[in-house]
Design a protein around this nucleic acid. Sequence first.
RNA 1: GUGGGCGUAGCUCAGCUGGUUAGAGCGCCGCGCUGUGGCCGCGGAGGUCACGGGUUCAAGUCCCGCCGUCCACCCCA
Length: 432
Amino acid sequence: MSEQPKQLVAPTGTHDVLPDSSRAWERLVGTFSEMAHQWGFGLVLTPMFEDVAVFNRGIGEESDVARKEMYVFEDRGGRTLALRPEGTASVVRAFVQHQPTTPWKAWYVTPAFRYERPQAGRYRQHHQLGVEVLGTEDPFVDVEVIALAWRFFETIGLSQIRLMVNSMGHAECREAFVVSLRSHLSSQESNLCDEHAKSWSGNPLRVIDCKKRECRTVVDAGPSIADALCEECATHFKHVTDGLTAIGVPWERNVKLVRGFDYYTRTTFEFVSDALDGAQNAVGGGGRYDQLAEDLGGKPTAGVGFGSGIERLLLALQAEDSLRFEKLRDASIDVFVVDTTGGQEALQICDLLRRNGFAADRAFDGRSMKSQLKAADRSGARIALLVGPQELEAGTITIRDLRATDEGNRQKLVPRSELVNVVREAIETSMN
RNA sequence: GUGGGCGUAGCUCAGCUGGUUAGAGCGCCGCGCUGUGGCCGCGGAGGUCACGGGUUCAAGUCCCGCCGUCCACCCCA
């Protein structure tokens, strides 16, 4: 006697998306794809894993993501690879490798992997969609990238979103700011929270978005990035915010907005949902990364982009109660074919309908008519086509309106040769 | 990585201070209606009470471990 094999389940922090909820995914990704094309972006697909250096040099070896969250492994050829923890680095690596003409406008949708302790809205595999523009430092591009994200959120029905923007300045402004921040923090070390009192010098910028009161007091009294910007960077930032204002995208400046990846220069931004609480309220973010292409071994090339987490967007939609799954499901099937003669008729009728552009489904296993009609009801189909021995004999089909209420006038016998036209007509009238 | 809550049917959950064959609603299958869904009535299938140890005459219930999940921190999407 062998034991029953142990049931296997999805790994910690991962999840299956089944047809009920995947309708919402299709809608999000479909909408984004359409909008990205409207904005002039082309789809880019890059490998899910890369040489680990792509991410170490990209997001910074000092960042938490690179230090302790990456899935790093060695393949059979001894190469050290990593599953992608975010979207941007791979796209920029592809740009550097292929040197397309600029400006290069790319959009993507991809899973991202981080070894984290899972909780609501945070997974070991999550999914991001986003865009990148390489080859121009024109502030209008920053505006376009932010605007695309904003309009996308509007289109899918999110209303409680706030956009926060900031500028880190270019490499020199940023470096000068880090120096003055460092000296401020070192003089205030004893006033920082327990953790940052020890760790501030590794990455002083991290202290800026610490939520502890002690750190906030120290930070508020210290230098502001806003004052550290050179004239060019200040002007660049003003063009970005003026551009947003010009097209009616509301923004607020947040001088403490310091994002987790080291590659950001100048513009940074983040979208938060007020419908989600605290910890996981960021639904998207991004910024400019004018050094990144060079860091990955390419020619100096400016870039800017944003990424948004699909799971977070769905949580935010749910929190705003903007998701209507029922409606999405109703849209699926036009016709359900009921065949009590063995199934051969349903095979041919479904094929005919599908070739003519209808969404058709049927039952299997030779069930009773009653049971098949029950399945028809569940499918959400507008109409059912019934074929039993009588119809088969007479070369006819019974068409039944599954939504009508007057029992006397809801089904009729039609010649099989007229099927496609009759179905088309029935669907048109039942749509009204 | 640190701290806490929770794991009982496919789903949502009940199960009092340990005590016979572990329940409900929804869903699923069937019958009432032997060719007609949705509503209603009746019936049925489905559980090693997450898993592994321990205490006890007796554990879903108490203890320990483990895994999973949720929450907070951290970080982020």
